[in-house]
């Protein structure tokens, strides 16, 4: 399998979704990054999260900030919702393009994002 060519840092953002890459759904450039979860069906927040096995401080919150390091690393997140049936949010990077990274669904509160940098 050939290595996919991945544009990183598009639109002033550090993380780029690479949905066709089986091993790495997100490519990124190393450095600090802030992600936020926006409300679709109110209300959703990050309850707890770990990046590269280390807890991300300052939670619960609508945003998480961590530093992307080189290599393939996991961002594990647990979302918390006001509605456990219809609750829904969207994960975006806080950057000029406000890139869409995925959905947060109440029925699936625990999610792993594999990020390669």
């Amino acid at each position: 399998m050939s290595e996919p060519i991945v544009p990183v840092g598009v639109g002033g953002c550090k993380i780029t979704p690479t949905p066709g890459d089986p091993a790495c759904p997100f490519h990124a450039v190393p450095g600090p990054v802030t992600l936020e979860v926006t409300d679709v069906v109110p209300t959703v927040m990050f309850l707890t999260a770990e990046y590269d096995g280390k807890p991300i401080p300052g939670l619960p919150s609508k945003q998480i900030t961590f530093t992307i390091v080189a290599g393939q690393k996991n961002l594990d997140v647990v979302y918390v919702f006001t509605n456990t049936v219809t609750g829904q949010g969207e994960l975006h990077e806080v950057c000029p393009a406000h890139s869409f990274l995925g959905d947060a669904l109440a029925g699936n509160p625990a999610v792993r994002y594999v990020i390669c940098a």
Binding site: P17, P19, P25, D103, N108
Partner: peptide, 15 residues
């Protein structure tokens, strides 16, 4: 494409 990806990946669609 991003939604297809999160649907197909077990780690993003664990439940």
């Amino acid at each position: 494409p991003t939604r297809i990806s999160e649907t197909l990946r077990y780690e993003q669609n664990a439940t």
